[in-house]
Design a protein around this nucleic acid. Structure first.
Lengths: 191, 191, 191, 191
DNA sequence: AATGAATGAGACTTCATTCAT
DNA sequence: TATGAATGAAGTCTCATTCAT
């Protein structure tokens, strides 16, 4: 039924919040159940274990992230614009989910399935970005993609822990990183 | 006694291994004790709790990392060389401790003291790098530092999960990142 | 559910036995669980900690004791009868629960909540007795009450440790104390 | 050596304080050692176990109490005076050691040797008092003694928990109890 | 005689998961 | 389908006691 699907989504939403704000180990099934407005037992009707619920949450998150990343770059024309759309999307994701900082692409060790899925996500994400870079005839596009995305990642902690940060700051960050990546470190310096 | 200090180090070494390979939550005090060759109770003679042991391990790790990072850049002359020494040191740290991937500067949530210490470490590290950058008359040196170091961080996963990676690969990575940072994305491209 | 209340009572009963016969510190949660026929974890569904279970046991005991003490004195007419009903009730409580000698109104130190509750119990009990005494126009009724009840308490150890004591002995004790309290030490002596 | 005896006393003093203020179970050997100014190991050179130290502390306390009780009654003439000296001594003991309320003649269950010793103490104490009572040709002197001493015990909690109580209050209590015991409950009432 | 580092049994408590209703 | 009471394995931490120095 669509009802079953709705219930599943409700649980995933709750799990996203709880896993995201507490981390996998501090998150308790009972908290997720309460937040979803169902009983503990019901969680197990939809997901076979805490771990599989965690993986499902992440999968949904990954898919959504990639879907929007792709859609937005497709709407852009120039290389600069495309990179900028990636950067914005990436940083805004941090900004919009800053209440759930543990939801950011980390896998608890000793959880091989999740590790694999995480790898695949990065593969896909970097593949997306690498394609943009390749179009510029730049070699080692995958390496470039990792470098570029890593710079974005590096601002996560700032975004998460700075309470006063604004959406405008995010845009400036994004612009800064794109310029730095394209032109190198002296881009703001008078020659 | 020097003996007491040795014992403490022995425990810290064991804790580094276990926390580093399993992560905070999957690490068990009994495993640390066994690896250190002492009893469970002894751990508590040196550290008041699992959490404080974890923090002590990280503190030692941070201090050592910063100490060497500083020493090595001091031995270099040019800007390029200095950045390269940072990059090498950073990536080699990942490489040498790849068996303990969870030892890389992550703080479990809900552990405020550790979070604070982690912040301070990054502050110190970025301060170190920012000084190098400032000497080049580059503005927003702290932002630059975060971008540069984040690129280094971005290769962590590759280093950790690629079994065939060599020390030479590390050097090439380092060189690549320094060039990318200084010259921008077209540095290998023929104009 | 009535079931939930029954389960709670079952646990309280078991806890009364174990705490009562071993004392707070020697009592083990696992023993209480076994005696109640439930698992360790179940105890914590009904009581948040060993300490709170202990307090709950005592509260129930206090309430019951006071309830019956009051009911029985209300059925009596003369001062002598009323005191005698108190004395009987008090000593019979010792007699009937002699297998659980640690259940007698002691609070482990370092347990402030329990200490407070114990105080309140004595306040209530002495208030009950003091009212009887006041009706006799006797001054300092609270002091009298403490003296009277203390005499009863003084026989606890005899009752608990003497295996051959009978219910008749208890009655004689009670009668003795009432007479001693009312008439003074020469009540059995020929002038 | 006398030195050995001094050391022993020092430990007993410390143990009295710690056991007395925390109770047997909450008292830690390390605290006793620290307070005595010796090491943990040293405790075991003088006492074979925590339990035997506890018993030794109590034994010393019992002996001292009885010694003084006896000496003081011997100095009195009349029955009233003798009872009053007992009452004063008993209540002043509570008063002077009110910082160590757990030192008052309680034996943790599951400690048979201590239970036995406690019994013997009461036997001795009541024997002392019973002799005074017997001299008055009162029958059942032992029962009387228990009643009398129990009344004294009953004020322990007041003495311990009332911070503002004075030595004069103690004397009044003592006088009150002696009168009550001798004359009965109407002793202050106008006939 | 004195120390104090080391031990390890054992206690309380948590929580993912199950299953009767 | 949904519940939530019950389970019990497992983990952290304590502390009396020992023993090499």
């Amino acid at each position: 039924m669509t009802n079953r699907k709705q219930q599943r989504e409700k649980i995933l939403d709750a799990a996203f919040e709880v896993f995201g704000s507490k981390g996998y180990y501090e998150a308790k099934m009972i908290d997720i159940a309460k937040l979803a407005g169902v009983s503990k037992g019901t969680l197990y009707l939809y997901f076979s274990s805490k771990e599989s619920l965690y993986i499902a949450v992440n999968n949904r998150s990954f898919d959504e992230f990639l879907y929007h990343a792709k859609r937005r770059t497709d709407e852009c024309q120039t290389f600069h614009e495309k990179l900028y759309s990636i950067a914005k999307h990436h940083l805004l994701f941090f900004y919009e989910t800053k209440k759930y900082p543990d939801s950011f692409w980390q896998a608890p060790h000793q959880m091989p399935e999740m590790m694999g899925r995480l790898h695949q996500f990065f593969e896909d994400y970097h593949g997306l970005v690498a394609k943009l870079i390749e179009e510029q005839k730049i070699k080692n596009a995958f390496l470039h993609s990792k470098a570029f995305c890593s710079m974005l990642n590096g601002y996560k902690m700032d975004i998460v822990s700075d309470d006063d940060i604004t959406e405008e700051d995010i845009m400036n960050y994004a612009e800064f990183i794109v310029n730095l990546y394209i032109e190198g470190c002296y881009f703001e310096t008078q020659k």
